[in-house]
């Protein structure tokens, strides 16, 4: 299943995901996967050529070993050591998401990369600059020719290639998934944690993706040094104040710290926050939920060599 993808010249690859997953929301009918585009997107993702001073790549903030999050930084770091205002989210199962960013400000994955490329504190460049730099590279021209049948590099092609690679980041082979596929079983503690999770957390962190990808307020008080009101800034509606996109709780061991501003370093702190938010849990129950959450770590995904750094020759 996962990991079977190899970058030969097969066109129209089907996105690999298990039977217990719903259908992706991304329209693969309209934009099918294509191995040469995926490979090009992967090369671009790891290439600092997308930043103004050739120092920062997408992977600088979205490292494969952290489920494509930015571990150890509460707020993301960009070009010239600028500090952003939000924690870099883990990237996986993006084909099931419709709105991107913590506040859903971006309506399609194609358009997402414009944000970090143009942000003065992230990559500090612009899509025009990126396109002219790439057009000056014979190696890239050849890759674009292979992927799109045209040597001329456009903004649309750069964005489409990045999308193709990111869509292949599917995390669906954690212990939880193996249990669902009948290949493994939960321990007693994990199973108890699973039941508690379904009772207290699943309305928002809906299985099997472990997010409904809706927006919610989980009770975090606003950090007055950031004054980030989340979804409200996008919709202008006060009912959305302090609503943030519900993150998936897969791969938590790799993607700490937690929440939109990275305020919690450990799962224990997260669970303590929820008990303060009137979800009554004993310390044993918290331990059980954590045991269950750890079954959502997908080492096959995190160490998948098909997602790793790939350099243009």
């Amino acid at each position: 299943m996962i990991g079977l993808m190899s970058f030969t010249d097969i066109k129209d690859i089907r996105l690999p995901y298990p039977d217990h997953f719903p259908n992706p929301t991304f329209d693969f009918q309209k934009t099918p996967l294509d191995s040469t585009k995926i490979l090009l997107g992967r090369i671009l993702f790891y290439d600092p050529i997308l930043s103004k001073d050739n120092s920062i790549s997408c992977a600088s903030c979205h490292s494969p070993y952290n489920a494509f999050a930015h571990t150890d930084h509460d707020l993301s770091h960009g070009i010239f050591d600028a500090i952003g205002t939000r924690n870099a989210p883990a990237l996986f199962n993006l084909a099931w998401q419709k709105e991107f960013m913590w506040d859903g400000a971006i309506n399609h994955i194609d358009m997402q990369a414009l944000a970090p490329i143009s942000h003065p504190g992230e990559m500090g460049s612009s899509i025009n600059e990126v396109v002219s730099t790439l057009n000056a590279s014979n190696a890239y021209k050849e890759l674009f020719q292979k992927a799109f049948g045209e040597k001329t590099i456009t903004g649309a092609k750069v964005l489409k290639a990045l999308t193709q690679f990111q869509l292949t980041l599917v995390s669906a082979n954690a212990k939880y998934d193996k249990v669902k596929m009948g290949k493994d079983s939960f321990t007693l503690q994990e199973n108890n944690g699973y039941l508690l999770f379904k009772k207290n957390c699943n309305t928002c962190h809906q299985e099997p993706l472990f997010s409904s990808y809706q927006f919610a307020n989980n009770g975090l008080p606003v950090d007055t040094t950031l004054n980030d009101f989340g979804r409200w800034q996008v919709t202008g509606q006060t009912k959305d104040s302090l609503h943030f996109k519900i993150p998936s709780v897969r791969n938590l061991s790799y993607s700490y710290p937690y929440m939109h501003d990275g305020r919690f370093k450990t799962l224990r702190e997260v669970l303590n926050h929820y008990t303060e938010q009137k979800i009554p849990l004993t310390s044993n129950e918290k331990a059980d939920i954590i045991a269950f959450l750890l079954t959502l770590n997908d080492a096959d995904f995190v160490f998948d060599k098909n997602n790793k750094y790939y350099k243009i020759k």
Binding site: N107, H108, I109, T154, L159
Partner: peptide, 24 residues
């Protein structure tokens, strides 16, 4: 068209007619 992803030609974001921080 606004929410259907990226397009070539006159709609390509290289023309500076697409906001980067919020879709549109």
């Amino acid at each position: 068209t606004h929410s259907a992803g990226v397009f070539e030609g006159d709609l390509d974001p290289i023309h500076g007619m697409y906001w980067s921080w919020q879709s549109g």
